[in-house]
């Protein structure tokens, strides 16, 4: 049996001209199996993304075919966690896209400041770098004490890291530069303490943060909020799922609530194009409520 051949050379997979369509079929079956066995529905994720991650797993585990992978996934429960990790891309940064945070300060914060209580849903928070970035920004604008942030992700491992707020020291140079470009006027190092190769962000930043497990595909509205942050998550979904999740955000937002997407994500060409107005086109900041 091919799957028992551990000597299979990395990169030399069986897929090619003779069975390219079989590859697609096997992937469909695999996603069905995963959904039914584990309740995680990846069927409407980007196909290119899924194929790349599945290919990667085949190489790493020296499996020959997607069918071999399916068997291993169904029979080895622990292996499923590895696979989930493969599919959830957790690449993130503090103050990623500094110009976005700059515009957030200029165009959104003044509006939020007029509210007595502010609620933010940060969906797909990954390891939390974005959460601490937003908390720092809110603190500097004097809004942190009256803001509650719901930070959610469907990957429990990353949520654990996010709660701890401990990151690699070597990344701080980039984050410090992002922070400065984003309009920060202190030093990022004011917000953490460094020890050996790590830094730990002040616990006070996360005092009003609720970290929770939430799957955007299968779970419903999390809370009614004034702002939804969901950056670089929709990019992994196909058009159908993008529409579904955007509807979920729309249902979660108060009237005039803000929606912030990743730089390459957009509500253009989606069902919601007409129910939001554009606050900043380049930085993908929108406001619920049609253009008048």
């Amino acid at each position: 049996m091919l799957s028992e051949n551990n000597d299979l050379p990395v990169n030399d997979l069986v897929y090619g001209a003779d069975n390219g369509d079989l590859f697609d079929l096997e992937i469909e079956l695999l996603l069905d199996a995963v959904n039914r066995a584990y309740g995680y529905d990846f069927r409407n994720y980007s196909k290119a993304h899924l194929k790349r991650r599945i290919m990667h797993r085949l190489k790493m585990s020296s499996l020959a075919t997607v069918t071999d992978l399916q068997k291993k996934l169904l029979w080895e429960k622990n292996f499923y966690r590895t696979f989930l990790q493969d599919l959830s891309i957790n690449v993130t940064e503090m103050f990623r896209d500094p110009s976005f945070y700059k515009v957030l300060r200029e165009k959104v914060i003044p509006v939020l400041s007029t509210y007595a209580h502010i609620k933010v849903w940060l969906a797909g928070c990954s390891t939390g770098e974005e959460v601490y970035s937003l908390a720092i920004l809110l603190k500097e604008e004097g809004l942190l004490p009256r803001t509650r942030i719901y930070a959610t992700d469907f990957n429990k491992n990353v949520l654990e890291t996010a709660k701890q707020g401990i990151y690699k020291k070597q990344d701080m140079e980039l984050y410090e530069s992002n922070y400065n470009k984003s309009g920060g006027e202190s030093n990022l190092s004011d917000y953490y303490t460094a020890k050996y190769g790590s830094v730990m962000f002040d616990k006070s930043l996360a005092k009003n943060v609720v970290f929770a497990d939430h799957n955007l595909v299968t779970d419903g509205v999390f809370a009614e909020v004034n702002m939804v942050f969901c950056r670089n998550v929709l990019i992994y979904f196909d058009k159908i799922l993008q529409n579904k999740v955007l509807n979920l955000f729309s249902d979660s937002l108060t009237n005039n609530g803000f929606l912030c997407l990743g730089t390459k994500e957009s509500i253009r060409f989606t069902q919601l194009e007409n129910s939001f107005s554009v606050i900043d086109k380049k930085n993908k900041i929108y406001k619920k409520g049609a253009v008048k």
Binding site: A48, I89, V91, I235, K264
Partner: peptide
């Protein structure tokens, strides 16, 4: 961003490693 061919009609982007 990585550029990917998504299907017969469309492209997609990715911020993977």
């Amino acid at each position: 961003y990585h550029l990917q061919v998504e299907n017969y009609n469309s492209l997609s982007l990715s911020t993977d490693e």
